[in-house]
Structures are given as C-alpha cells and as structure tokens.
Design a protein around this nucleic acid. Structure first.
Length: 425
DNA sequence: TCTGGGGTCCTAGGACCC
DNA sequence: TCTGGGGTCCTAGGACCC
C-alpha cells in the first residue's frame, strides 16, 4: 500500500530555537557560545538547553541537582526562568510572523503554524528563509522553519530543520526516505505510551506508522492516533486554529521552596494561588462555576509516606470574585488536609469557565455583582500598576517562608533600560 | 537538601431515565 | 423475586502537548 501527498496546502511551523536560552542570551552577549541552561520554577528541572549544553549530555527535563556536576565541570551558565521576559519576546516574534500570513495559529510560547498555501512551491523555501531572517534581525531570536502539507508533517520538517544549516525544510515529494529515518517517538502526538505500543508492534519509524492499516490503528489507539496516521499521508485532519479561544480551565500551582507541614502555611499558599487564578480569569472576562483544591507530598521522597488529595467544589453562582473563591478554596483545603505530612505542592483549578457577560438568572446576583465588580476592578488596576500582589489579602501571608527558589535569575526586565547590554567604545 | 507548570482532548464507566 | 435494553450525560483519570 502506498499513499501520496497530493495536497496543495502548505503549513509552516516556525519554532524558536532553545527559546528561553535564546532570550537570556539577548541580554547577555557573553554567554553567546557557552553552554547555557534555563531551569523550571523552583530551580527544579532543566527546561531549555543551548546546543552546547545538549552536547555535554544535559537532558531535557532532568532535575537540576542531578546535573550539577556536569554544570560545574563544563562551566554551564544557569538561569532561573523569567517568564515575563519570555512572554514579552514571544509577543514580538508572533507580531512579526503575523506580517507573513493572517492565517496563523500561535501554538505555544515559542512556536506558531502559518498557512503559506498562497506561496508557490518553488518559492516557499526562500519564503521560509525570509521569515527566519526577519525574526532574527528584528528580535535576535533564532528560529527553524518546517513546511509541509499537514501540521504533523510540518512538525517533522521543523524537527529536521533544527539540525540543518539553513534552518528551513520543505517536505513535499518523495518523503518516504525521510520518514523512514524519523523515530516514532519524535512524531507529534506519539508520546511515551503510544511509542511503546507501536514499537512492540514493529512500528519504529514514521514511515511504518504512515503505512499501518486503518483498522489496526483505530482498534489499537483512538481517534487521535488515526488522525496522526492520516496526517502522515498528507491528509489534513488537524485544523489550523486561527481563532484565539478562551481557556476552559485555569490552574495555578506551585511547589514549595522547602516542605511545609502546617495548615497555616498551606492556607497561605492556596490563598495566593486562588487570588492569582481569579485575577487571570477576570483579565479574560470569565467566571467560574467550580473550584478544585489539591495538595500533595513529594512523590520522589521514598522515606516518607505519600499523600495526595483534591476536592472540587461546585459554586451555586458563577463568579470571579477573589474573596468568594478564597473562602471556598480554604473550606476545601481544610477537608483534605491531614496532619503529619510534609507537603511539597498545592494548587487550585478553576473550571466550568464562562464568559462573564453570559448572565445567569439569579435575583440577588446583580446587586452583589456590582459591588464586588468595583472592588475587583480596583484590585486588578492597582496590581497591574504596582506589580502582582501589591494588593492582596491577609490570609495570603507576607514574607512567606515557603516561597520558591530562584537563585539564578537574570532579573531582566524588558521595560527597563538598565537591562540593556553596555557597550564601551 | 534539591524532581515545573499549565493546558487540551478522549474514553470508560457510573448515574440516571424510560 | 428476579430481571431488559437503550439512551444520555457527567466525571475522573489518562495521554499528550509545550
């Protein structure tokens, strides 16, 4: 059986190379050719690596303490993550990409799909280079561009482009050889479990998966597995989502800098997360009808007993009011808290989100809402101006001993001239 | 000592109804 | 006392993504 790619669609995936590392390098030219690593919150895991750091053998997602020796020996430059910096640079990159096609899907902080179907086949590679050059010139962020007829194939093209001198790959005809050399585990949509299943059945590259029987894949996996197969054959099944949609749930959670035992401290952190989540949904003009609180001890600590629990509370009336949500969250926390454990993480999830304009029928709601609306607006305004948590509530605590570790922050602020590199002449 | 955080979608199975 | 079949809706948990 053989399948041909006869689609005229051209989807480009533009992906920033080692994005967080590239952001840090912008403001720190000295580390341009050095191995660099960016750590997750709490300086927990490696989440971005420069090529030099990859070569040394530092793996993605590895706990920092496990690579400390490698870091020391090779003089690897370490940074705590600075999400406001990355978010800011991401917006700049995306703005440039929008100039190349209005059919764009911003897929994550560092990548976007662009519909380039309007570009002729023999010009599309050149076009990809143009995109790359402009992003680099205007932001300083290096990217890779993969172009093909479906999202899944453009992901593969991008993967290959990352290791390619030009940084641009257009996959069109005769791609079977390329697919044969593409590891099954690297295919978009194939994670740990699926790749285990596929490998067990002798499917260990993208070409094998492309030629698997429809009935087998439907029986053995689910609709997503079947879609991946179709996409490898050049039939687009995963649409370009050009409309920005509002989130359906909102989660705020953090690990502690050091383990926490007392209900008091858990209460402070749950309150803090709740305030932040409430502010987030208000920014998007949304309300919630359910709040989940979860707490857990460290799943890695083999010397202590593990405890993890969560509780979901349905709210009678949709709300985005911080104070109401905190009240419910704390009630939930008290129900699931157990004395005698060393807690590592807490979080809250707001779900069943709706647009705030979709008013519900409730006689008391209008009066209550007006009052709280004014208060919440005042809080959001102040926090936007003077920094998050400028206004908080007493339960959130001050000078929290449980706060996260951030020992390697570059403290770069794109709104501040002080962060610009200095050049002496 | 030290192992991130925030999402989406799918499915199986339970609850409930007729 | 025992026992059908079919349908919908909801949710928890799993898998995946970056």
């Amino acid at each position: 059986m053989s399948f041909t790619n006869n689609s005229k669609n051209k989807i480009a995936l533009i992906d920033c190379n080692s994005f967080y590392v590239s952001c840090e390098r912008l403001f720190n030219p000295k580390i341009q050719n050095m191995p660099v690593v960016v750590l997750s919150n709490n300086d927990g895991c490696v989440i971005s690596r420069s090529i030099e750091a990859k070569k040394i053998g530092i793996k993605m997602g590895e706990p920092y303490f496990k690579v400390k020796d490698l870091v020391k020996k090779n003089n690897v430059q370490i940074f705590s993550s600075n999400y406001s910096l990355y978010g800011d640079l991401s917006r700049r990159v995306m703005r440039i990409l929008k100039g190349f096609s209005d059919k764009i899907e911003i897929y994550s902080i560092d990548e976007a799909f662009l519909d380039l179907s309007y570009v002729k086949d023999d010009q599309v590679k050149e076009y990809g280079k143009k995109i790359r050059d402009l992003v680099l010139k205007w932001t300083g962020i290096p990217t890779s561009v993969g172009i093909s007829s479906t999202k899944t194939l453009s992901k593969i093209a991008n993967h290959i482009a990352k290791k390619n001198e030009e940084g641009v790959i257009f996959l069109k005809d005769n791609i079977d050889n390329t697919l044969r050399n593409f590891d099954i585990a690297d295919v978009w949509g194939v994670g740990k479990q699926l790749s285990k299943l596929y490998k067990k059945n002798g499917i260990d590259n993208a070409y094998n998966l492309k030629n698997i029987s429809n009935t087998w894949v439907k029986k053995s996996t689910n609709v997503l597995g079947a879609k991946t197969v179709m996409e490898l054959r050049g039939t687009a099944c995963i649409n370009l989502e050009t409309q920005e949609t509002k989130r359906k749930s909102c989660c705020v959670s953090r690990s502690f800098g050091k383990k926490v035992e007392s209900l008091e401290k858990l209460r402070e952190s749950v309150t803090t997360h709740c305030l932040n989540a409430a502010e987030k949904i208000r920014t998007d003009k949304q309300t919630t009808r359910a709040i989940t609180v979860f707490i857990r001890t460290s799943p890695f600590d083999k010397n202590r007993k593990y405890y993890s629990n969560s509780i979901t509370i349905d709210l009678p009336v949709a709300t985005s009011n911080s104070l109401e949500l905190v009240k419910e969250a704390i009630k939930g926390l008290i129900k699931i808290y157990r004395y005698g454990y060393f807690y590592q993480k807490t979080g809250i999830i707001l779900s069943k989100l709706n647009d705030s304009c979709e008013k519900e029928f409730n006689l008391l709601a209008p009066i209550m809402e007006n009052r709280s609306h004014t208060l919440m607006k005042a809080i959001d305004f102040t926090n936007a101006k003077y920094g998050r948590n400028a206004i908080s509530i007493a339960q959130a605590g001050v000078n929290n001993s449980w706060k996260m570790r951030r020992e390697h922050s570059s403290k770069i602020d794109t709104a501040s001239f002080d962060s610009l590199p200095k050049i002496s002449v």
